[in-house]
């Protein structure tokens, strides 16, 4: 509840600063450069159904991309980080491909996946996949030996080792990394939605919405606010997930880590 208040206060501060910049620009240039928050929200509410459709489309796309990134990146990263032999073979490969922004390969991705929905999801998935993969790998490499010995000494199989040690030990770091990369994912989402949006209407995604209403500045800005809320939503979701799945990390007590 306290956190909700913090967010509300932060939103208020952003609105005040926004208003300040808007008014100053108006005073200096003599015409509206940046519409203020009140006008933006008014326009947004008037087009609420269109805006929420765009929000929903973007949110669905992001959810799918995030899920695939987790589903593929988490196991791959854990195995690569935990199995010493595999790490030495595959880590150069990962660090060579990791810095390539997927949008740099957009032309080839169009050719491979067409210009429809698939390619948008692929680009966002690629960006998030590497974040999850690298975080999982790093966390798996840093698992203290004593946890592994404790479980192995009881006769654990490889599968039990992953289930009782590797996955729970790395989950906090992986979820934190995923949370931090929400910003990157939203950027990628915006890029693919604007670059590929020309075929669809403003309801096909927030990126397209912003692009479509470029010359109706208030409405375009309402789309930007939507993008901010989208990022916040996934950030909060991942944080809640971390608090729920990794309760042990958030305890008080004499030896709390």
């Amino acid at each position: 509840m306290k956190r909700v208040v913090h967010y509300l206060v932060a939103a208020l501060v952003v609105f005040l600063l926004w208003e300040l910049v808007s008014v100053s620009l108006l005073a200096v240039r003599g015409r509206v450069i940046l519409p203020g928050p009140v006008a933006t929200i008014r326009e947004g509410i008037q087009h609420v159904s269109e805006l929420s459709s765009a929000f929903g489309a973007s949110a669905l796309r992001f959810s799918i991309a995030l899920s695939i990134a987790f589903f593929l990146g988490l196991p791959a990263g854990l195995v690569l980080g935990f199995e010493r032999g595999l790490y030495q073979v595959f880590s150069p490969l990962i660090y060579l491909t990791y810095p390539i922004p997927p949008v740099a390969l957009l032309v080839f991705l169009y050719l491979a996946f067409g210009v429809g929905e698939a390619v948008k999801i692929v680009v966002v998935t690629c960006a998030l996949f590497f974040q999850v993969l690298v975080a999982a790998q790093g966390a798996a490499r840093g698992i203290p030996r004593t946890y592994v010995t404790a479980v192995r000494s009881a006769g654990a199989s490889r599968w039990q080792l992953y289930r009782h040690v590797v996955v729970p030990a790395t989950l906090p770091a992986v979820l934190t990394a995923a949370r931090v990369s929400v910003g990157l994912g939203i950027t990628m989402l915006y890029v693919v939605e604007t670059k590929l949006g020309l075929v669809g209407g403003p309801k096909t995604g927030l990126g397209r919405f912003i692009e479509y209403y470029t010359f109706r500045a208030e409405l375009s800005l309402a789309g930007v606010v939507g993008l901010s809320l989208l990022g916040l939503m996934f950030y909060a979701l991942l944080e809640l997930l971390e608090r729920w799945l990794c309760r042990w990390k958030h305890l008080g007590g004499p030896g709390a880590p």
Binding site: T146, Y147, A150, S153, V165
Partner: peptide, 17 residues
């Protein structure tokens, strides 16, 4: 490893989760 042998580790080796 054998079932009739148990090992107690230096720092107890508890899993914090």
């Amino acid at each position: 490893v054998r079932r009739d042998v148990a090992l107690i580790l230096q720092d107890a080796g508890l899993l914090p989760w």
